[in-house]
Amino acid sequence: PQEEYKKRAKKALKKGDEDTAREALKRAGLSPDQAEEFIRRFL
């Protein structure tokens, strides 16, 4: 589910792994723009 992928993305970002985070967010159904926004907000 979407929440699970978002959790995964946050874990990846904590490790500084933005590529894995983007992949997880893409799987969560976010557009690339939404994924970038999510990452920017998190960092």
Rank of each mutant, 00 (worst) to 15 (best):
L30F: 12
E4K: 10
E23Y: 05
D19T: 13
A28M: 06
I39Q: 00
D19R: 13
R41A: 12
L43D: 05
K26N: 08
A28W: 04
L43G: 08
K11T: 13
R8S: 10
L30V: 04
Q34T: 04
K26H: 12
K26T: 10
E4N: 09
E37K: 06
R8V: 14
Y5S: 05
T20R: 08
Q2R: 11
Q34K: 06
L30K: 01
K10F: 11
A24S: 08
Q2T: 12
R22D: 00
E3V: 07
D19V: 13
E3R: 10
Q2V: 12
Q34D: 11
E3W: 11
Q2M: 13
F38Y: 08
L25W: 00
A21P: 00
E23W: 07
K26V: 09
A35Y: 04
E3A: 10
A9Y: 02
T20D: 07
R27A: 14
E3Y: 09
R27G: 07
G16R: 05
L43V: 08
R41K: 12
D19Y: 11
Y5R: 03
A9L: 03
Y5M: 09
A12Y: 07
E18C: 14
E36T: 07
P32Y: 10
P1D: 14
L43P: 04
E37L: 07
F42M: 06
I39M: 06
I39C: 02
P1W: 15
R27Y: 09
F42L: 06
E23M: 07
R22M: 06
I39D: 00
D33S: 12
K11A: 15
F38P: 00
E37R: 07
G16Q: 05
L25E: 00
K11R: 14
A21C: 05
K6E: 11
A28K: 01
D33N: 08
D19P: 11
K6L: 15
K11M: 12
A12T: 01
L30N: 01
A35F: 03
R8A: 14
D17S: 04
D17I: 03
A28L: 05
R27P: 01
R27H: 12
Q2A: 13
A21S: 02
E18L: 15
E4Y: 14
E23Q: 10
R22I: 05
